[in-house]
């Protein structure tokens, strides 16, 4: 009897301790998500009834499909470029070069600046009369007209990279720093040159860190809003499309916006599942090397 009472009491305490997080989960995540799902199946402006029209209209529209494709292009390109930028940077900063602490701090700058402010700063810097173009026009021979960077898809990818590469860079740096130097020394002792050590030992071992960072970069880029809103010009990905549905038409098209949000969520989760699977495999291969 006493044992039974004790068991119940332990369960009660566990439940009591879990209660705040459960309430947070239901209140801040589950309930709003449920509302969004329900709304996405409601006919526009109605509180009753069910329809698939919000989904079919968006997915059957050429513009809708272009928005999805654009979102993927922007996220994948910026993630790939972030990785390409992060790995050499992390390898350089690992060497504790002069002023490496300042460089590390600078890597974090895009994370602490609000996206909107960052986007405005980039627009000013890369604009036709921004510092970049002033420099190019003054010092680069043969360039007589300002280079067009703002409001182009390449420019937008570049802005994404600037804002989101710290995720990849920080996790890569962290993976590099947790690497046992003895492993690299062992490789060198075995006769491998620096490139071989990097190619066959270091890179495979830090791959899980790079992939973890790239997932974060991809997710941030996929959901990017303020940067494409301000700096995207005609390139307006999913998050901006959702905003457009609720901010421009009167009355706001909440059901259409919810359906696009659901499409965005599903695509994000599906892509993440595939990505994580690849990442696990890559991690496994790295383990094999180890």
């Amino acid at each position: 009897m006493t044992a039974l009472w004790r068991k119940h009491s332990v369960h009660g305490i566990t439940f009591f301790l879990l209660l705040p997080s459960l309430l947070c989960f239901f209140g801040l995540f589950f309930y709003p998500m449920l509302l969004t799902v329900i709304l996405s199946f409601r006919p526009e402006g109605q509180e009753l009834g069910w329809t698939l029209e919000n989904y079919t209209r968006f997915l059957s529209d050429a513009d809708g499909r272009w928005v999805i494709l654009l979102t993927f292009i922007l996220s994948l390109a910026s993630t790939a470029l972030s990785v390409l930028l992060s790995v050499p940077l992390a390898l350089t900063l690992r060497e504790k070069v002069r002023g490496h602490r300042l460089y590390r701090l600078m890597v974090l700058v895009p994370l602490v600046i609000p996206g909107l402010i960052g986007a405005l700063g980039l627009l000013l810097f890369w604009g036709s009369r921004g510092w970049f173009n002033l420099f190019v026009l003054q010092f680069v021979p043969g360039v007589t007209t300002p280079l067009r960077i703002n409001y182009t898809i390449q420019g937008l990818i570049f802005f994404y990279v600037w804002l989101y590469f710290p995720y990849t860079c920080v996790t890569t740096m962290s993976a590099l720093e947790s690497l046992d130097p003895g492993i690299e020394e062992a490789g060198a002792v075995a006769g491998a040159n620096r490139w071989q050590v990097l190619r066959h030992i270091v890179l495979p071992l830090i791959t899980p860190g790079i992939l973890a960072g790239s997932v974060l970069t991809f997710m941030a880029a996929f959901g990017a809003f303020s940067v494409p809103l301000i700096a995207g010009g005609d390139y307006r990905p999913l998050a901006v499309e959702i905003y457009k549905q609720i901010s421009i038409p009167i009355p706001a098209r909440w059901s259409a916006a919810s359906a696009i949000a659901m499409v965005m969520g599903v695509l994000q989760v599906a892509f993440l599942a595939v990505y994580m699977r690849i990442a696990r495999r890559a991690g496994g291969n790295a383990g094999g090397v180890r």
């Binding site: 627009l123 809103l229 995207g232 010009g233």
Partner: peptide, 16 residues
């Protein structure tokens, strides 16, 4: 492209 919001219009004026 057309200005996304007034802030872009202002920037376009600034850039000439």
């Amino acid at each position: 492209p057309l200005a996304s919001e007034p802030v872009n219009l202002f920037e376009d004026f600034n850039s000439g």
